[in-house]
């Protein structure tokens, strides 16, 4: 029995591997995010400001929102009205949401004033903004899922704004079951996925360099013409 394959078979396999979907995706991912880019142990020396920690603080807030939300989900939507432990977990959920937004907004201000979209980082900025919008939706659906007076009030007020856009036909703030699903499944999944994507984009491009006012020319890969007006 022969254990060595003959050369033509090996060539065929190599050609197949080059075309293979799995292999292509792996090479694409490894090229985009080699380990030292994904988890770098060094940072450029211009990273020298406390403003840089607000992204990490936002992640901390989100982690705590998810953790406390998970405990609330385990016990069900009415638990916190009747249990003092439940009320305490709800309090943690509320305050972690407040901190999540607190840090996220400071992070947004910081990145705005750093013009952090420079150097082909536009998509990083945009995923961040979209995450912010989805977080507002997640917060809103949480408020209307509280099953108390606050949720009754917010739902009956918000319905007019949602209905006016035509979206009310599909997003019914008065439908508790629907709002709870949005709040504990769809929107958290979106926020977590977008946050993950956002972080991977940051790691892919690295942190933006300081603003240079008197630069002249940059090498630019692409097909844009020299007379680019922007």
């Amino acid at each position: 029995m022969s254990t060595t394959k003959d050369q033509t078979v090996l060539d065929q396999e190599e050609a197949e591997l080059a075309r293979q979907w799995t292999g292509r995706i792996r090479r694409l991912l490894v090229d985009a995010l080699p380990p030292d880019k994904l988890l770098p142990d060094r940072q450029p020396s211009y990273l020298s400001s406390w403003i840089y920690i607000f992204g990490a603080l936002t992640i901390g807030g989100l982690a705590l929102v998810i953790l406390t939300g998970t405990v609330l989900a385990l016990e069900g939507p009415q638990w916190w009205h009747v249990s003092s432990i439940g009320l305490f977990v709800n309090s943690m959920h509320l305050w972690s949401v407040e901190f999540f937004f607190f840090f996220m907004v400071i992070h947004l201000w910081g990145k705005f004033f750093m013009a952090a979209w420079r150097g082909n980082r536009q998509l990083t900025w945009m995923t961040g903004v979209v995450t912010f919008f989805f977080s507002i939706g997640a917060g809103f659906t949480g408020y209307v899922s509280q099953t108390n007076f606050d949720s009754q009030w917010i739902a009956t007020q918000a319905k007019d704004g949602i209905n006016a856009t035509g979206a009310g036909a599909f997003v019914n703030a008065l439908n508790f079951g629907q709002m709870l699903m949005w709040h504990i499944v769809l929107l958290p999944a979106a926020v977590v996925a977008l946050t993950g994507l956002h972080i991977l984009m940051v790691r892919h491009k690295g942190i933006v360099t300081p603003i240079e006012v008197n630069g002249t020319e940059v090498p630019h890969q692409g097909t844009q013409s020299e007379s680019d007006p922007s």
Binding site: E212, T216, H220, E226, D228
Partner: peptide, 10 residues
């Protein structure tokens, strides 16, 4: 390609 450096974009 060379394009003019824009401090708000590049």
């Amino acid at each position: 390609l060379q394009r003019r450096f824009n401090p708000d974009r590049d």
